[in-house]
């Protein structure tokens, strides 16, 4: 039986934005458009920007770890946990829901596990990270906090025909 569709609020996860150092270790770990799991999730969000997604309350540890790992260049490391809404859309029908709200090709060949893209989702700028869970299609969706409720409402509306369920974190 196909995995049921569910939307999970992951906003409480620590989110640390790193800007600069496009030639450094972060770029080698997760180039633009790719994400890599290494305890935390390192997301290549921009050509010179990365987002580190880690367990709740670990911002200080993440900032210290990034600072310790930098290779001499100037970078900016900011805890943006409370600036963004983060939700996870999981289930076999997740690509079908995304196809209804954005114009990016989410087929396996174009957006495999670990792919990252930033685009318009239902008219708002959002970042999408494909982060499969145990072989089930799963996407992390990140947008400005002020658009969070709107994004959730749009996803629930688009997922209604697939019996989407809402799960607490």
């Amino acid at each position: 039986m196909a995995e049921p569709l569910r939307l999970t609020d992951c906003t409480a996860l620590t989110k640390v934005l790193v800007r600069g150092g496009a030639d450094g270790a972060l770029a080698a770990g997760a180039p633009y458009g790719r994400a890599r799991r290494d305890g935390s999730l390192l997301v290549g969000l921009l050509p010179d920007g990365w987002l580190v997604i880690a367990p709740p309350g670990s911002a200080t540890d993440v900032v210290d770890r990034v600072d310790a790992g930098r290779d001499g260049g100037f970078i900016t490391v900011v805890d943006v946990t409370h600036a963004y809404t983060l939700v996870r859309l999981t289930g076999a029908a997740a690509p079908s829901v995304l196809e209804k709200v954005c114009s990016i090709d989410v087929a396996e060949a174009a957006t495999p596990d670990g792919a990252v893209f930033r685009s318009l989702l239902a008219g708002i700028t959002a970042s999408v990270v494909r982060d499969d869970e145990g072989g089930t299609r799963s996407y992390l969706l990140l947008c400005d906090r002020s658009y969070g409720q709107y994004l959730v409402d749009v996803l629930l509306d688009a997922g209604a025909e697939y019996d989407i369920g809402v799960h607490p974190h």
């Binding site: 633009y32 458009g33 050509p47 114009s103 685009s119 318009l120």
Partner: peptide, 17 residues
């Protein structure tokens, strides 16, 4: 729909620009 080709992201809807 007008498509613009971004050197980083590939072909995208002009509404993103």
């Amino acid at each position: 729909m007008m498509l613009l080709t971004c050197p980083h992201c590939g072909a995208r809807d002009a509404g993103e620009f």
